[in-house]
Design a binder for these strands. Structure first.
Lengths: 186, 186
DNA sequence: GAGACGATATATCGAACCGATACATCGAAC
DNA sequence: GTTCGATGTATCGGTTCGATATATCGTCTC
């Protein structure tokens, strides 16, 4: 997911590590913060596989800045990671994807959201089963935790449904007339 | 948090690693799953600092089972970890604490919940500020993500308020008459 | 203009964690 | 009987986090 996020940011414009960290904190807000201990190694990995490249490898004067630019292979990797089913059950993984949704194809967006929905439906079912199975033999706090988890999951599913519907609407009208104005309503 | 969870489980009865992993999955449901790569090293760490001890160090016959028992020092460590302010901003950290709330003192429980509430209020404020600051210059998906985050956080705060209130009620009536029946209503 | 100070910027370290896997034993089904 | 799934302990490589080291830049103060 970190690689995906980096590539997503570099898609807008080339940046160096410090900027990436700032823009990431800005985009994901309080949901996800990355450390330099993850960021710089991730950049090196991406560079090694040719997904990003340095713009000014060595500036002779002043402070050293390693500005990275995304390559064509990086673009492909971004799309691939965005549609990958590997991180579907990771809550933050979906948030990260959502933050860069605008760079994915509409069909891919719907696919991601529907897979996410399936994960949440699974989770809801597991919570329901669990709650039914150990009624009475569990303390009030755990019970409350499970019930709140159910509420939250149901809320999330409704949210997804709205977004999927909006995406389909935009997709349909987008085929007839250009550009459906702004975006998704929460 | 892993150490805290292990000690919480061992407080009920002595167990071996495999059982710990199972009971952990059972208690935390879909919220948290631990790997053996974390569990066994954590047990060794706890053993090294004298918080747990092996019950049957070496069984001569049949399958090897390393049963661990919590020590007095382990009890202290559990209480200490349960009240620690170190993991307050970790969502899962609070869930884990909640799953073992029954082993904490009522005052500690209220303290943990109030600190958690403060974290969520902070998060809500940050989301509001962020939303106000970059209205218009952000895509619909990110906007939706932030708005949903606000809704969820507000919901969580109300949940906490209910639990804090219930805890206070139980605490007050518990001082007059013994044992306030069952527990917390979600 | 000297010094302090905070923001900018890159890099690495140790501890911890995850997913996978290896290895072994048990019970039960076929 | 032997295959198969559940039980059980353990470790490996790769990744992440939190902290820290190092250095430069802009700005403010005396």
């Amino acid at each position: 997911m970190l690689e995906f996020a980096i590539l997503g940011l570099l898609q807008e414009r080339s940046m160096h590590g410090y900027q990436l960290k700032q823009r990431l904190a800005d985009a994901l807000g309080p949901f996800w913060q990355v450390s330099y201990g993850s960021l710089y190694p991730a950049l090196k990995r991406l560079q090694k596989q040719g997904a990003v490249e340095m713009v000014f490898p060595k500036a002779e004067v002043g402070r050293r800045k390693n500005v990275y630019r995304i390559t064509e292979h990086g673009q492909e990797l971004f799309a691939e990671l965005g549609e990958s089913t590997q991180e579907d059950s990771d809550d933050n993984g979906f948030r990260v994807r959502l933050a860069f949704f605008r760079h994915l194809k509409p069909e891919a967006r719907i696919g991601v959201m529907e897979r996410r929905r399936a994960v949440l439906v699974d989770r809801l079912r597991e919570l329901k089963d669990r709650l039914a199975s150990y009624r009475e033999r569990v303390d009030g706090y755990t019970l409350s935790l499970m019930r709140h988890g159910m509420d939250t999951t149901e809320h999330d599913i409704r949210w997804l449904d709205d977004m999927i519907q909006a995406e389909r609407r935009a997709s349909r009208s987008g085929r007839k007339r250009r550009a459906p104005k702004k975006g998704v309503r929460a």
